[in-house]
Design a protein around this nucleic acid. Structure first.
Length: 514
RNA sequence: GCGGGUGUAGCUUAGUGGUAAAGCUCCAGCCUUCCAAGCUGGCUAUGAGGGUUCGAUUCCCUUCACCCGCUCCA
């Protein structure tokens, strides 16, 4: 009877628009997520996970680790793929971030070209402005060894000569005039963004005299790349193989928004899959399929998830192709927000580290003796974003119950799997409840609650998404049975006290299959 | 980063230039035999810092946080 519990709520799930305010409020009231430094007025872009939030986050994290490292998927050849785990330091040698491209020109004001995706230091660009007040204006490097300015004038200058222009530094030009400028490599005006100081990475200092600048990692991926060699030499793996890591990453976002969706400290679940360049396309497709399956296994409504290939215009510089997993959050509705990017990073990262560190990243195939730098497919998921998606997906309005709603968590995600509730705090009921609790606590995350009346306790369990409540009443001492209340239907049935453990194992599994 | 809005208890809301009010929650107890019931008692708030004023939660300034657009972004 419990097998279709989830499907019974699908209708109301889609018919009620959920407001982020209600989710944020519930998260605080029930101890899922708090604002960081709440008592000091908070701090923009940082969040704390409360008693239930950390359980939920750990459940999602463990499920990913289970699916990637402990029990990785079966590959195209019918054998399980090889993936090993890693937990690298948050602070690494700063050269790591120079090699990766995260630091470099990043502390100076930069302008981006929306057309070519190239980035320039604002103080390295000079602008040629026609003396006759015509347009376009032309941008060229200050250090113009290749006579780019002259070539650009020939191309866009409508017959004007170099002497028909005056020059100004880009930094001296008002932002509203940027529309007139053709970037150094662009084909049309207005593609340069206003200069911005990019300093994505948080800085810190190390050493007794605090004289070395270091960076908090902006992604977990680089920790994997710099351990590629160590792993290869110690873990008895052969290409193709993967290294997986879950951990905190930090980005000094200009504009944190939407609860935990864009925060400055967040958690990633990343796997770098190293393979032969000729097989990269095959593995790219393989991982897209695996990741689709995984996201559909955590209790989100399939209608609210989309899988989308990036257009060429939105690809980042290191990626040849990228595939997104996106969820329809209340704040993006009817659009979607990114949960995971599966990127084909080519050999960009290993080559960069090879060049910066001087350590060879070549792999020598033990059978063919071929030498090559492996290509990388990277499924990079946001753990904290996943938590938010699970919270949004679970929030189910139901006017027919005292709480007015319940959290329809997938049983694998639910912070508490079952609650044990004596109907009253007398007649030996608390003692039976305690015995039952003691017999279950090794197997499940269980709550024993004896306070207040039964209705309030059911309501509370609804709000925190506990799948089942076992209730001890007077009949329990007579015939050794308890009632089970199903979260999604509020229906009750009576089962033997002695069978509770096996019943729970069984029914959590049934419910997980939907 | 720009523009607009909002900050009163854990939550939802009153209200006032002069002792800050209520419902729910929460806690302690009583009572309760299945869905936030009832009774008694209790804890808890004007985001922070300045200024004006005899007196500021209220008026002014600054700042912080959150929300909505834009911009950006994983």
């Amino acid at each position: 009877m419990s097998g279709n519990l989830n499907s019974q709520t699908t209708q109301e799930h889609t018919s009620h628009k959920v407001d982020m305010k209600d989710i944020v409020s519930l998260c605080k009231r029930r101890g899922f997520i708090f604002q960081a430094s709440d008592i000091y007025g908070g701090i923009n872009g940082f969040w704390d996970y409360g008693p239930l939030g950390v359980e939920l986050k750990n459940n999602l994290r463990d499920w990913w680790w289970e699916s990637m490292v402990k029990c990785p998927p079966i590959g195209p050849d019918g054998e399980p793929v090889q993936i090993v785990g890693l937990d690298s330091a948050i602070i690494q040698n700063p050269r790591v971030w120079e090699a990766s491209g995260h630091v470099g020109g990043f502390t100076d004001p930069m302008v981006d070209c929306k057309e070519t995706k190239l980035r320039y230091r604002a103080d390295h660009l000079v602008i040629f402005i026609p003396k006759d007040s015509s347009e376009p204006w032309l941008a060229a490097p200050k250090d113009d060894e290749e006579n780019i300015a002259e070539k650009r004038i020939k191309k866009f200058g409508k017959g004007k000569s170099l002497s028909a222009y005056e020059t100004k530094d880009l930094t001296a030009i008002a932002v509203q005039d940027f529309d007139k400028i053709i970037g150094p490599d662009a084909s049309k005006p207005g593609t340069l963004t206003e200069p911005r100081a990019f300093n994505l990475l948080f800085e810190s200092k190390t050493g007794a005299t605090q004289d070395t600048t270091v960076y908090l990692r902006g992604e977990t991926a680089q920790g994997i790349f710099v351990n590629y060699k160590n792993t290869l030499d110690s873990a008895r793996v052969r290409v193709p193989f993967g290294i997986a890591q879950i951990g905190k990453a930090f980005r000094n976002e200009v504009n944190p928004r939407n609860f935990i969706f864009r925060s400055r400290e967040f958690e990633q679940m990343e796997m770098e899959w190293f393979c032969h360049p000729s097989e990269a396309d095959k593995w790219f497709d393989f991982w897209i399929e695996q990741r689709k399956k995984w996201w559909l296994s955590i209790g989100v409504n399939p209608d609210d998830i989309i899988f989308r290939r990036h257009g060429d215009d939105e690809l980042v510089f290191y990626s040849k192709k990228t595939f997104d997993v996106e969820y329809r959050f209340p704040f993006t509705d009817p659009g979607f927000g990114e949960l995971e990017g599966i990127a084909y990073r080519t050999d960009y990262d290993l080559n960069q580290h090879q060049e910066y560190s001087g350590v060879k990243m070549e792999y020598i195939d033990p059978i063919t003796n071929e030498r090559y730098v492996p290509h990388v497919i990277e499924p990079a998921a946001g753990l904290t974003r996943g938590v938010l998606a699970v919270l949004c997906a679970a929030y189910t309005v139901d006017p027919n119950r005292p709480s007015g709603m319940f959290m329809n968590f997938h049983p694998r995600m639910a912070p508490i799997k079952a609650a044990i509730l004596p109907l009253t705090a007398k007649d030996g009921q608390p003692e039976i409840a305690r015995d039952l609790y003691m017999s279950l606590r090794n197997d499940f995350m269980i709550e024993l609650d004896i306070k207040q009346n039964i209705g309030k306790r059911y309501a509370r369990q609804d709000e925190i998404g506990t799948p089942f409540c076992f209730t001890i009443d007077n009949q329990t001492s007579e015939d050794k049975t308890v009632t089970v209340r199903h979260r999604n239907t509020m229906k009750q049935e009576r089962i033997a006290l002695s069978s509770v453990k096996s019943w729970l194992h069984e029914n959590l599994a049934i419910m997980a299959q939907g």
